[in-house]
Amino acid sequence: MSKSAKGIVKGLALGLALACSLVSVSGAVAEELSLKGKRIGVSAIGTDHYWDLMAFRGIQDRVKELGGEVIALDAGRKDQQQIAQLQTLIAQKPDAIIEQLGNLEVLNPWLQKIRDAGIPLFTVDTATPHAINNTTSNNYNIGAEIALQMVADMGGKGNVLVFNGFYSVPVCKIRYDQLKYVLASFPEVKIVEPELRDVIPNTVQSAYSNITDMLTKSPEKGSIGAVWACWDVPQIGATQAVEAAGRMEVKTYGIDGSPEVIKMVMDQKSAAGAVAAQQPYEIGQTSVDNVAKHLAGQKVPPFTFVPAVLINKENAAETGKPFLAAAEKAGVK
């Protein structure tokens, strides 16, 4: 055997060994990740929004894939109902509880009770000291990126209409704080006071009339440069309002990546400037993987970030596609 042939064989052997070890590692992971015989409680504040529904589905599907039983509770946006569901859930003593979004102020005492009852608590998109792990997007990143995109599109100056109705929701707090942090470096970009309040339900209609009113109040072109919201449902109403008022110099910015908004950003004629698109279904699934790892005795970090993508006017045609494909696959338009 020539030297080079030997080298090739050696290389092949090494490659094979590596491949084997990789397979065995992934095999081991797959083997370890099981929820057979486990009951996992899932509590969501509501599922009326695309993001919420996809994350909720991701959790349930993954628990079933791993052979577990899921107790799925949707509080229909009623705090009272979510608390009652959590209280009963604690009495049911599941092997773990995954909590998805809601008002932290309302939830925290009850999350504490979950821990006191010795039930491992995991959260989706909800940063709380009571959870073993919070699986979410990197909201610090998203918040800064969308704010920077907005500032860039505005040319570093102008007035911004900001929806700030959900500061008590942790992810909204982070995104809003990041917006403020970015704006601190651009003193010529100003938030119009008083800020606007986005609401649930009737989010789109309410945002539409809010923005219409504000544009009427500041009729000169250029007096308003952008609209910002910590999620993208108000962005839908805002975009429609801007277009209806014929004020195309105003661009709208939001976070989540509902298919409807991604389509708006892709449309070059739309006033939707950019949206940070998250992967809610994967976030839900990853959270369940973390539960399975924890129950198998593995160490789980306090937070897991699932990548998000900034979709703007320049890259939308490319970056928007996979998100729309995922939504279509899930049967959500």
Partner: peptide, 16 residues
């Protein structure tokens, strides 16, 4: 009683 249970006043009481 509601404020005690939710540690806060929250919107959406009308749902009851």
């Amino acid at each position: 009683l509601t404020v005690s249970r939710l540690s806060a006043s929250t919107p959406g009481s009308g749902e009851l």
